[in-house]
């Protein structure tokens, strides 16, 4: 006859891992649902700001900026993109870089208000869990151009879902930008300041386009 406590221990040993697995599956399902809802909300906020043609340009830009500051892990993504040069930059350069990076992100969108007029946004076919984040698939539709898929990589940052990357046509924005920025620094003898100068100039160009392209 088997000892009951041993049987219980055996049962516990069998059931416990299953319970842990089930628990993790629930957590992952929850993650996916949470990330999808987060992207849905973020996308709607952005689309609303872009399509609100009655508001003055500066106000629309400020609305887009507020959404991006809330939704994107600007610190984390910025540091990832600067990569190995982050440690070589002075604290002043690091701070200036993050400021310019944020500005670039915002102006990149606001300089395209005209182009994105009438944009529509919806959740796509699949949402999947990867090792440490969730990929949320969306469809971006614009009048008079073909719709395209865009994946948003959502990670938990400080307990909150945050966008850490966008992927279109198999291309990750943060990987491409990392390659681009690193190349600029490298071709200027490892000077981070050269990148900062190039970013400043780029922001000016975007601001000019924004002013001319806006309705």
């Amino acid at each position: 006859m088997t000892c009951p406590s041993r049987r219980m221990a055996l049962r516990a040993a069998l059931v416990l891992p299953l319970a842990v697995l089930a628990d993790r599956a629930v957590a992952q399902g929850g993650d996916i649902a949470r990330a999808s809802a987060f992207i849905q909300q973020t996308g709607q906020d952005l689309v609303a700001a872009i399509n609100d043609t009655r508001a003055p340009l500066a106000e629309r830009r400020e609305r887009v900026a507020a959404v991006l500051r809330r939704a994107v892990d600007i610190q984390g993504v910025g540091r990832f993109i600067l990569g190995r040069w982050w440690r070589q930059a002075t604290p002043a350069e690091q701070a200036e870089y993050l400021r310019l990076f944020e500005e670039t992100l915002i102006r990149n969108l606001s300089s395209r208000f005209g182009e994105y007029q009438g944009v529509r946004f919806s959740l796509g076919r699949t949402q999947q869990r990867t090792e440490d984040d969730v990929l949320v698939n969306t469809i971006i539709e614009r009048p008079s151009s073909a719709p395209f898929w865009m994946d948003w990589r959502v990670a938990e940052v400080g307990g909150q879902p945050r966008v850490v990357d966008v992927i279109a046509e198999g291309t990750s924005l943060r990987l491409t930008q990392r390659s681009e920025y690193s190349s600029v620094i490298q071709r200027n003898n490892g000077q981070v300041s050269a990148l900062l100068a190039a970013m400043r100039q780029q922001i000016q160009q975007m601001a000019a386009r924004e002013a001319s392209g806006a309705r």
């Binding site: 469809i139 151009s145 073909a146 395209f148 898929w149 198999g170 291309t171 491409t176 690193s182 190349s183």
Partner: peptide, 25 residues
Amino acid sequence: YATLRSIYRQRRQAEIANRLDGAAG
């Protein structure tokens, strides 16, 4: 130059893995 290189290599990887199928546009 660096941007083109990065995009080409990423896209090729996605094409090889058949990850771009059904992608619109």
